[in-house]
């Protein structure tokens, strides 16, 4: 199934990102996190994504630099950044995409299912046949996190079971 692109999809990515950062990433003495930050086309190294299959077909993707991904893993695992392993980064960034994707899916046409998250190098990641519906940039600890909702394309994973 492909989405009817004439159907307006209203997703407040800024609000969803703010809820996720506030609950899981911002500490008590956190410097200001900027939501809906200017999109400066910052270089990203890693992309974490979840696919949506069903009444809505698409992907939620969060992209960031290696340093940014280590910062996320460091806070979520409550460990020092230099102690974070690549496995930790994959787990943490994937879960960030999963939580963002689950919340996005809740406001999209249903029923649909969410895949398990996938994390890979941005340079190797492609979503053929998709168009970007909306995006936002979160600036946290001087790093940019690009959150994108893509519509259409082939399912990225067969392992879809709900969020």
């Amino acid at each position: 199934m492909t989405n009817d692109l004439s159907t307006a999809v209203e997703v407040d990515l800024d609000m969803i990102a703010e809820q996720v950062w506030s609950a899981f990433l911002n500490g008590d003495n956190e410097e200001e996190t900027i939501f809906a930050a200017p999109d400066t086309g910052a270089h990203t190294d890693l992309a974490a994504s979840v696919a949506m299959v069903g009444a809505y077909e698409g992907h939620l993707v969060v992209s960031c630099s290696h340093k940014a991904s280590r910062d996320v893993a460091s806070v979520l695992f409550a460990m020092e950044p230099d102690e974070v392993t690549p496995d930790d980064v994959g787990d943490a960034l994937g879960e960030l995409a999963n939580v963002l994707g689950g919340n996005v899916k809740s406001v999209l046409p249903s029923p649909s299912q969410l895949s398990l998250p996938r994390v890979s190098a941005t340079a190797h990641e492609r979503w053929p046949g998709t168009v970007e519906v909306c995006r936002t940039v979160v600036r946290w600890r001087d790093e940019a996190y690009v959150v994108s909702l893509l519509s259409g394309g082939q399912s990225a994973s067969n392992n879809t079971q709900g969020a």
């Binding site: 939580v99 689950g102 919340n103 899916k105």
Partner: peptide, 27 residues
């Protein structure tokens, strides 16, 4: 404890005998 709580999932959970759903992110 799940990243989305659509009406469809809440209905499935309750029909299956779950107490409730807590959505991620939580506090």
């Amino acid at each position: 404890v799940t990243s989305e709580c659509s009406d469809e999932m809440i209905a499935k959970a309750e029909a299956g005998g779950a107490l409730f759903l807590i959505s991620k992110p939580f506090t």
